[in-house]
Design a protein around this nucleic acid. Structure first.
Length: 251
DNA sequence: AATCGAATCAACCGCCAGCGG
DNA sequence: GCCGCTGGCGGTTGATTCGAT
């Protein structure tokens, strides 16, 4: 049963079947032992890849869709405070992932930087119409990344006071000591992601209280064929077989 | 209707810290 | 104390979607 982690591991987009298998195994073994899950599930993926897929896409507590104004505000506040510590910021936003926030910020900053550039240089000096934001100088690292901010020192935020790293850490300490400043912070600990998503759906149905729910993978296109449905059932059966074998062969 | 650039999203990569042997 | 393994995190990239022209 040695599923060797080598270059033959699958990459690229996940299929619906892979998702189903992963969810099944995560509910059985928890969302910690990713390498183990990757091996026993038969998914030809790395543990890392499995974890990423679960955290960013399959986790039942995830919100989808646009950020609300409150969330946007919170992201701005927290980024001003903590810089690019996306996972930390994500913990304050139930149902949002670090990846999502990172992406949002990237887009947001691009917009902001463009607007700022336009407003500060009305002459649009150079011949090029739009200067890519990515090429804006970063804060002294030499490496260019438009959101390589060190956080709060981001030039685009004139209204945000500059912080030194020490100050940032002081802030973090303070906020962890006294979190009442931030909305909904009391619901989150600094531990595993499971604890962070204390969304209602998770609260009422912990991972181990698992029942197969097709709605999880219901696609919008309702003309989904029965054939696909049948395939699903077959796949679940196969997965269950795998699990059965696994337990039977356990000492 | 076609095209092109911008925006968004999903996934990978590399680094690092924590932990167990 | 050292070393290897694993998971977590931040940065980046590539594909897809959207919107303007």
């Amino acid at each position: 049963m040695e599923m060797v982690k080598d270059e033959s591991c699958r990459k690229g987009p996940w299929t619906e079947k892979e998702d189903m298998v992963l969810v099944n195994f995560v509910h059985l073994f928890g969302d910690r032992r990713w390498d183990f899950i990757a091996k026993v599930s038969g998914l030809n993926r790395t543990g890392k890849s499995c974890r990423l897929r679960w955290v960013n896409y399959l986790h039942p507590g995830l919100k989808r869709g646009k950020m609300t104004p409150q969330e946007e505000k919170l992201v701005l506040e927290l980024h001003a405070k903590w810089g690019n510590r996306w996972s930390r910021i994500a913990r304050r936003l139930p149902g949002r992932t670090d990846n999502e926030i990172k992406n949002y910020w990237r887009t947001h900053m691009r917009k902001m930087a463009l607007e700022k550039k336009r407003s500060t240089s009305p002459s649009s000096s150079s011949s090029s119409t739009v200067t890519r934001v990515d090429s804006l100088p970063s804060s002294g690292t030499g490496k260019v990344s438009f959101y390589d901010t060190g956080g709060p020192k981001m030039a685009v935020f004139d209204d945000v006071k500059g912080y030194s790293m020490d100050e940032i850490w002081k802030d973090i300490d303070m906020s962890e000591g006294n979190t009442t400043k931030l909305p909904s912070s009391e619901n989150y600990s600094e531990q595993g992601c499971c604890n962070h998503f204390s969304c209602p759906s998770m609260a009422s149905s912990p991972p181990w209280d698992f029942s197969w729910d097709y709605s999880l993978w219901k696609m919008d296109d309702d003309d989904e064929e029965e054939e696909e449905e049948e395939e699903r059932k077959v796949f679940i059966a196969t997965t269950n077989n795998q699990l059965f074998n696994l337990f039977v062969h356990k000492p």
